[in-house]
Design a protein around this nucleic acid. Structure first.
Length: 423
RNA sequence: GUGGGCGUAGCUCAGCUGGUAGAGCACUCGGUUGUGGUCCGAGAUGUCGCGGGUUCGAGCCCCGUCGCUCACCCCA
């Protein structure tokens, strides 16, 4: 029988690495909760129109990276390539924007893009994101950035940096665009590059080729075109971040791939990854809500790539790969002989009933093998129970770290649960 | 979509100018009638990615194909 393989480019996590993945995700979510964000659980597929209108038809994400299919009713469905559009749709649909503002929510889940996979880039990947909708105060910009910053710090990441810039408001952007296009027309660009410039002239700032980087050095920067209002907002955000102790650098050449961004935008970059070095990013979006048929509210949010943060954490040696699980059970019980087997199964079940984590050795392994299983499980204590122990009502409880043993009563399950709870 | 590298044990990999398949780790058992981590010994495990070709003989050479991977592009 031929083995069935996972579809190309998907990431999967299984023990022991899955425990690290979980730790990363929980840390990111924890930072969001800690700042007053509430959970939102959304569908992984949406009406295709949502992403065309929300993310922007001209973006690469929409034009060539979406998983789009027709459902049985003939509707065009797309597996979500990002999280913000879905959140907006749901907020509008359920009138959350008519309640108290800002609406602050977090989400976590799988996202899909049909790209050629490589290190840190998958066709199904995981993101944790937050959105704060309704309110264009600089304090919210600073809060959102600080939440991401704090989550990375809490994880123990050090080898990363934060780039920020402002794309200003529509007025600032269109003034800049005129000059930028004029500048680019004076450059001798190849056909593919010229086409990219036509779709989004800002893209050229992101080009990795040395000659393009060189010729873009004298290109007009959007940051220099911000009007007073946009500039004041951006300066306030910087001031707040500095007060918070969040380190950042202003990168006027930073480019984001989604069309909806306006004003403050930011990106977290890790230095220990391959080519896919962005571990998270986001920004403000002024017109998105109204474009999707909602109230004309501004919002700001970020998306953090869980897969990439895990890679980054591993690159920094945050997770020591000693095979021992980081989360383990309190007691590991081993039975010697058949009668003891059912006693032990009952004991483990009783412990679990009491909320005490417990596991056991199955089958007829030699004691040595069962002790090895106890060791591997990372259990805090182990206990061996055979005919002798059942007869005497006493057994040796072993501390797996120190190796010390103590005699405990096992006559009733409650004797054991009480004892274990007290340790 | 474009280019490079690689497919041999569960994992990481070795395998000479073609001659019938190896190591380390992990696993199981034993050394120590019932106490793990260290040490020692033994054992099990392979359609050498798949299909074809050349050859007396292919893991090795040739062609095709599938997969993985890294980079471009793009992005989390």
């Amino acid at each position: 029988m031929a083995k069935i393989q996972a579809p190309k480019g998907v990431s999967e996590y299984f023990p022991p690495r899955s425990t690290y993945f979980e730790k990363v995700r929980e840390t990111l979510i924890g930072a969001a909760k800690n700042a007053g964000y509430s959970m939102m659980e959304l569908p992984v597929f949406e009406d295709t129109e949502l992403f065309i209108r929300g993310v922007g038809e001209s973006t690469d994400v929409v034009s060539k990276e979406m998983y789009t299919f027709e459902d049985r009713g003939g509707r065009s469905i797309t597996l979500r390539p990002e999280g913000t559009a879905g959140v907006m749709r749901s907020v509008i649909e359920h009138n959350l924007d008519k309640g108290q503002l800002p609406v602050k929510v977090w989400y976590s889940g799988a996202f899909f893009r049909a790209e050629r996979p490589q290190q840190g880039r998958y066709r199904q990947f995981y993101q944790v994101g937050i959105e704060a909708i309704g309110g264009s105060y600089p304090e919210i910009d600073a809060e959102v950035i600080a939440v991401a910053w704090r989550s990375f710090k809490t994880l123990g990441l050090t080898n990363f940096h934060l780039d920020i810039t402002s794309l200003g408001d529509a007025e600032s952007r269109s003034r800049h665009r005129v000059d930028l296009v004029k500048f680019l027309s004076g450059l001798n660009l190849d056909e593919a590059t010229a086409r990219r410039a036509e779709i989004n002239p800002l893209r050229l700032f992101d080009d990795k080729r040395a000659e393009i980087i060189e010729s873009m050095k004298s290109a007009p920067l959007l940051l220099d075109y911000l009007n007073n209002e946009s500039l004041a907002h951006f300066q306030k955000v910087q001031e707040l971040l500095t007060n918070f102790g969040v380190e950042f650098r202003i990168n006027p050449r930073m480019v984001r791939g989604l069309d909806y961004y306006t004003g403050t935008t930011f990106e977290f970059v890790h230095d220990g990854l391959g080519a896919q070095s962005g571990i998270g990013g986001g920004g403000r979006y002024d017109g998105l809500m109204s474009d999707l048929g909602g109230a004309d509210l501004s919002g700001i949010g970020f998306g953090i790539g869980v897969d990439r943060v895990l890679l980054a954490a591993e690159a920094e040696g945050i997770f020591v790969t000693d095979e021992r699980p980081i989360e383990s059970v309190k007691l590991f019980a081993i039975a010697m002989g058949v009668e003891a087997k059912s006693y032990v199964a009952g004991l483990v079940n009783a412990l679990r009933d009491e909320g005490i984590s417990a596991d056991m050795a199955y089958g007829d392994r030699a004691l040595k093998g069962s002790m090895k299983a106890a060791d591997k499980s990372g259990a805090r204590f182990s206990i061996v129970i055979g005919a002798d122990e059942l007869a005497s009502g006493q057994a040796q409880l072993k501390d797996m770290q120190s190796g010390q043993m103590q005699s405990i009563t096992i006559a009733r399950y409650s004797d054991v649960t009480q004892k274990i709870r007290s340790l």
